[in-house]
């Protein structure tokens, strides 16, 4: 008798279920923990980059006299100094600055879409999601150009000790420095670019759902918030890639 009454009595403690101790829904929590695990992956990439960099000699001469060599790790602003339409002009880090601004701007339009979702403003959610998709796609296009330039190389290339020249970079040869530099460039920016691509696909999916009124019928735009968390994380990773790959 007493057993059945205790069973029927509703449990209302913090961890008894049926409530949200972290004041966040299941989906949002899982997105946070996925992003945490993703941060570990990117952390591992940056560890490998830092370790490989310290494992090679730095360039110690005058910055003006810098030349590409297998002997030392290249100075990033001597490698990434090209800009589409400005052939042969030395514009250190200008293109990557543009890419950074585009991605930060896309983060802002994303947070504006989330804000519009809180107000149940379907038209504003659509508008800001479209802007975010646009900026994300432009970023991907920029990255494609940067990869193409990095792979095809500069006109001078690198003069080897046997008198031959190598141009551009792939996984085994690299005109800019040790082959490991090119490998890490492809892996780190490629893995980040894959994340941006997945983000654009997710954004297109939630844009279609928003247009169809799925979230309005559901009564909340939480899916926009969850994709927003992912999108901001992609921006966050770029902030770190930018510092450790292009600035330091």
């Amino acid at each position: 008798m007493s057993t059945s009454t205790t069973l029927e009595a509703p449990k209302s403690g913090t961890w008894d279920g049926g409530n949200e101790p972290l004041k966040a829904s299941y989906g949002k929590l899982m997105m946070w923990f996925f992003l945490l695990s993703d941060a570990f992956t990117f952390g591992a990439f940056l560890i490998v980059y830092g370790l490989s960099r310290h494992r090679h000699l730095p360039y110690t001469g005058e910055p003006e006299a810098f030349a590409f060599s297998q002997q030392w790790w290249p100075i990033p602003e001597k490698v990434f100094n090209a800009f589409p339409g400005f052939h042969g002009v030395d514009l250190p880090l200008a293109f990557v600055a543009l890419m950074t601004m585009i991605l930060i701007l896309s983060s802002v339009t994303m947070v504006l879409a989330v804000e519009a979702g809180h107000r149940m403003d379907k038209n504003d959610v659509q508008k800001w999601l479209l802007w975010t998709i646009l900026f994300g796609s432009i970023f991907l296009g920029c990255q494609a150009w940067e990869w193409a330039h990095f792979i095809s190389g500069t006109e001078e290339g690198m003069l080897l000790s046997d008198g031959t020249r190598i141009f551009g970079a792939n996984l085994t040869i690299n005109q800019y420095g040790p082959p490991l530099f090119a490998d890490l460039f492809f892996f780190i920016t490629g893995f980040h670019g894959t994340h941006v691509f997945s983000g654009v696909v997710l954004l297109i999916m939630i844009f279609i759902n928003t247009v169809n009124g799925v979230y309005h019928k559901r009564g909340h735009y939480e899916m926009v918030e969850k994709v927003g968390l992912y999108w901001h994380f992609v921006d966050l990773v770029w902030v770190f890639v930018f510092t450790f790959f292009y600035l330091v």
Binding site: I47, G50, L51, S52, R53, H54, R55, H56, L57
Partner: peptide
């Protein structure tokens, strides 16, 4: 690990 890189080198 990054500071370990120079020791490794």
């Amino acid at each position: 690990l990054i500071s370990e890189g120079s020791y490794y080198f």
